[in-house]
Structures are given as C-alpha cells and as structure tokens.
Computed example of a mutant assay.
Amino acid sequence: MTRNAQALGGASARWVETLPALVAGLSRDWSLTLGPTLHGGSSSYVAEAQTADGEAAVLKVAMADYEPIAGEVATLELAQGRGYARLLAADLSRGALLTERLGLALGRHGYGLERRMQALGQALRAAWRPLAHPPTALMSGAEKAAWHVGFAPQTWEATGRPCSERLLDLVLAFAQRRGGAYAAEAAMLLHGDPHEANALADPAAPGGFRFVDPDGLYAEPAFDVGALLRDWTDELLTADPLALGRSWCEQLASLTGVPVEAAWEWAVIERTSTGLLLMKLGAEAEGRRTLAVAEAWAKGSA
C-alpha cells in the first residue's frame, strides 16, 4: 500500500503521511480499540477493531484520490447485511468505513477449485437483490458497458496495442450488446468485483460466505459471473483456455441461473480490460498472461 501511494505521488503520497492522525481521529470518533493491521490490500489501510460495545469490526481507510468508497458504502447500505458484511459506520469525507468482522477469505480454506466456484455462486445468489428504483449512487449496466467502450481502445493504444485488433473489436461489440441489453426492471444490486479474496466466511452460517469490498453496480447478474472469470489465469494457461473457460462459464451460469452467453460476453470484456489495465499500471507480465487467455477466448467467440 505504502509503495503504491508513493508511486502515485500527489494526494496519495501525502495521505500516507497523514494516515496515523487520520486513523487516530476515526478511532476516537467511533470509540474503537484497534487491533492488528490486515495486510494484502494495495490501496487502503485495513485493520481489525473492536467497538465500544465489544463487537468485532474492521476499519478501512481508502487511499486519497485512488479508491473512492462512495459506491462501496452505497452498496453496503442497500444490502443491509444480506450477502455482505454489515456496515456499522462510514465517513466519505475521510474515505473511511467500519464493517462487522467476518471470517477467513474463501481462498484460505484449502478448498478445491470446484468447491470454491460453488461457494462463490451461492454467495452471489444470496447477495443479488432487485431494488424498487435504480440507485443513483451506482453505475448502471449500460454505463459500465459504455465505460468499457471508452477505456479499452484508449488503453490499447496507450500501452502499445498489446492484444490483437480482433480481440479489441470483439470487446467493443460485446460491450455494445451488453449495454443495449440493460433493462432497469431486470437489473439487480451487484458486487461488481467478486473474487475469492472478497468472499469471507459467515460466522452466522457455517459453510457460507458473505462479501466485502464491493464496487457496486446495478446491472444484469450475468456481469458478476463474467467478472469471476477474470481470475484463475494460471489454471487456464495450463489447459485449453477456451474449452476450460467455457466450461467454467457454463458451470457458474448454471449455479447462479444467469444466461451463459451474457456471462461469457462480460467475461471477455472484463478479462480484456483487466489485462489492459495491468499493462497500464506496469504489471506487463501479468497483463500479457491475462490477455493471452482473452485472445484464446476470442477465437471461439462470435
């Protein structure tokens, strides 16, 4: 986290210098007793905490100018603990939130991949929910698709065209299709960034998991399924990426009840944009591996 902040410079670098005072102020205002820092985050300070009434909690303070938390807070407020950690307090002006403390992340339980996929599918179904009105604080599925239409070609050019033009054209076609398919009446509150590290054991339901760190999105549930397939690059590259990726997509779609092709189109979009983002951030090796899978997927997509 500190290295990333210093690399970004500006407000993010200054944020590191002011963080101790910021955390001390939040601890005082929210009557918290702080515990160990939770490592692994790249853009926020996260620590165990205990509230004045003894509840186990987690304090998160987002890096200035890098990780806006408005979408996260809005999602947790709307979810009210259903499928997510309960939100206990939030202060957008200080980029901070306090949630209940859940258990270990899914990836730390030693489960095989099939079981982890099942757990993620079940957790997503429990977290998705329709709302009476589209939330103004969250991006819609149409807006997310439009974001990709802008981001992908611009970043492709800026990073030296690291994937084929055929893949880029496919991403743009898929994004336009998914954007056109958006219907507010069929949309649901989604996580937006589901993966194994964001699914934590639910102390109240042994064997179950709830989510943390949502981006927040109001879109077709197929988006979250497609977003899951940004992961597991190592496994995909040691097999036939297309055959295995399609198999996983079909399995996850069956578990969650979403249309396979919609999930697949979002998977191609999200994996390609993730690869381009990694290239932009300087993680060239991982970016090229991520894009190599997307290239294989493009050969079997229309």
Rank of each mutant, 00 (worst) to 15 (best):
V46I: 09
M139Q: 15
A70R: 15
G112C: 12
I69R: 09
A201E: 09
I269S: 07
R3W: 05
E100W: 02
D240F: 08
L229M: 13
S247G: 15
A181I: 05
A47D: 04
F209L: 12
A181C: 04
Y182V: 02
G107R: 12
W147D: 12
Q122H: 14
K144S: 07
A64S: 14
A49H: 06
T155G: 06
A123S: 10
R271G: 02
T136D: 15
R101K: 09
T159F: 11
T274E: 06
L190N: 05
Y182L: 13
V212L: 06
S164V: 03
A79R: 03
G41P: 14
A205Q: 13
L228E: 03
L242T: 01
G95T: 10
P241E: 05
A222C: 04
A89L: 01
D91W: 11
G41V: 04
T256R: 00
G9M: 12
Q176A: 11
R82S: 13
S12A: 15
S247D: 10
A197L: 09
P36W: 06
A292P: 15
A205I: 08
H109C: 02
W297F: 10
W15T: 14
R86D: 10
T256W: 05
Q6V: 11
G216F: 12
A227V: 09
L236S: 08
P221H: 02
A283E: 15
E17S: 10
D202N: 04
A158M: 12
A49T: 08
V16N: 06
A186H: 10
L131I: 10
L97H: 07
G40D: 06
A253D: 00
K144H: 13
L106C: 08
G179E: 00
A152K: 01
E235H: 06
V73E: 01
R125E: 13
Q122R: 14
S27T: 15
G192A: 14
L242Y: 15
G71K: 13
G83R: 09
T99N: 03
S43Y: 07
L236V: 04
M188G: 03
R116D: 02
V258W: 02
R116E: 10
V58G: 02
G192Q: 01
T274W: 04
E77C: 07
D215H: 14
P259W: 00
R28C: 06
P221T: 08
L242Q: 05
M188N: 00
G287A: 06
Q122N: 15
A146Y: 00
S44T: 03
P36I: 03
S273P: 11
L278N: 05
G226Q: 05
R82V: 10
R101E: 01
E165K: 09
F151D: 00
G300K: 10
P214S: 10
L19I: 01
D91Q: 07
T159D: 07
Q154M: 12
T33P: 10
N198V: 07
P221W: 00
G300T: 03
A152W: 01
D224T: 03
S247W: 12
A52R: 08
L168F: 00
S140G: 10
A49M: 01
S12I: 06
T272M: 00
L168G: 00
L34D: 08
Q50E: 05
L228F: 11
